Amino acid sequence: MIESEPEGDPASESLDGLTSKDKKRISEYAEHTLHPRTRSQYEAIWGRFAAFCEERGVSSPLPATPEIIAAYLANRAQDLAAVTVSKDAYAISWKHKQKGLRDPTLAPEVRTVLKGIRQTADPDEGYGKRKALLTEDIQAVIRTLPLEEPPSEVGPKERAKHLRALRTRALFLIGYAGGFRASELIAIRMRDIALNESGMDVHVPEAKNGPRDTGISYATDPDFCPVHSLRAWVEAVGIKAGPVFRRVRHSAEVPPDDAANPINYSTLWREINIAAEAADIDSDQVGPHSLRRGHVTQAKLNGADIDRIRRHVGHKHLEVTVGYVEDVNRMKTNTSQELGL
């Protein structure tokens, strides 16, 4: 007589050791990890991916193989900016985590394709039309951040959230005030910063058009001051040397100076999108370039000379800077306001 397995034996329900209840709980909590607008966007992306799988004869997109994901991303990269393709990968990753499945986007096949897409893309591809984050937007974002020092008895999760908020504030304010490219912002090291009585100088050793030094002044309001925000971040985590913007682990630990690497572009993009969502700014319209574009736009709106702006952000040719402020000029010079509507 063959004995049947005991009913409800967890091992009999899943080869990966998860029971159906485990997966249900994971799915329920994963459902609440995103802002409703982001979740809606991710569901739309998932629908496109599922349709692609169906076209390719894949019986089910869930779980997806790394190969079909790589093919989908490579296909999307033919017509879309690298940052949009990266968002597709995030959505596919999220869908699998939501269902309690292993994340196939971490597979070497997918990571290699994503890296190739980023490396072959135009550095400014798709960014010029992204929303310029202006001063009021930056301030709105910062007001949503949990910047207040948490009580000493809180756990590492809350402590890590606070440290990331300090880092996010510094990223936004330094990126905006400096008008830096994303690659320049995440590459800033402590040795590149020199404080002075007016604020600080940031040396950019590997800029697109050659090394440059960018001055950033103290702000009138300490809550929105790029210099104070940077100091608050580095002092909170004890940074003395090495990359300024580095990882914050879930344990609230930050890599020490001799073992730290700068955050990558994907982390910067994700931080900006999450913070924008919290401030009710459509994250689908913003990205790292929104800080640089915002600097140029706001400075021009406030009357700054176009050549001063060009030198500050490191444009080689004036016409490039002019291209950034076309929207500003268009709103000032259009004749629709003379139509009596």
Rank of each mutant, 00 (worst) to 15 (best):
A160E: 12
P151Q: 08
K97D: 06
K95I: 13
K115N: 15
S93V: 02
P150R: 09
T112C: 08
W94T: 02
L171D: 03
L163K: 14
F172H: 15
Y176P: 02
A177G: 15
G128E: 08
R130E: 03
G155S: 11
R169I: 02
A170D: 07
A107M: 12
D103T: 08
G178L: 05
L114V: 04
V85G: 02
E158T: 12
Y127N: 14
V110D: 03
P108E: 10
L145P: 00
G116A: 13
I117Y: 01
L163Q: 13
E149R: 10
Y127S: 14
S86V: 09
K115A: 15
T168H: 07
L106E: 08
D124L: 11
E109F: 00
R111K: 14
I92R: 02
S93W: 01
V141K: 02
V85L: 05
P150A: 15
Y176M: 09
Y127T: 12
L101M: 11
L133Q: 05
R159W: 00
A160T: 12
V113T: 05
D137Y: 03
D122W: 00
G175Y: 04
S86H: 06
G100K: 06
R130G: 01
T144D: 04
G100Q: 06
G116Y: 01
T105Q: 02
A170W: 02
A177W: 03
G100E: 06
D137H: 15
A140L: 13
L106N: 13
E148V: 12
T84V: 08
E149Y: 00
D103Y: 10
I138T: 03
R118I: 04
T144H: 09
I92A: 02
Q98T: 09
L101Q: 11
Q139G: 07
E125M: 07
V113L: 03
K95L: 15
L163H: 06
E136H: 12
P156E: 07
I142M: 07
F172V: 12
L114S: 01
V141T: 09
E125A: 14
A91W: 08
R111E: 01
R169K: 15
P146K: 13
E158L: 15
L134N: 08
K161W: 00
P151H: 06
E136M: 08
K115T: 08
Y90L: 14
L171V: 13
F172C: 13
G126N: 09
R143Y: 08
A140D: 12
D88I: 02
P151V: 09
V141G: 03
I142K: 04
S86W: 00
T120C: 10
I174R: 05
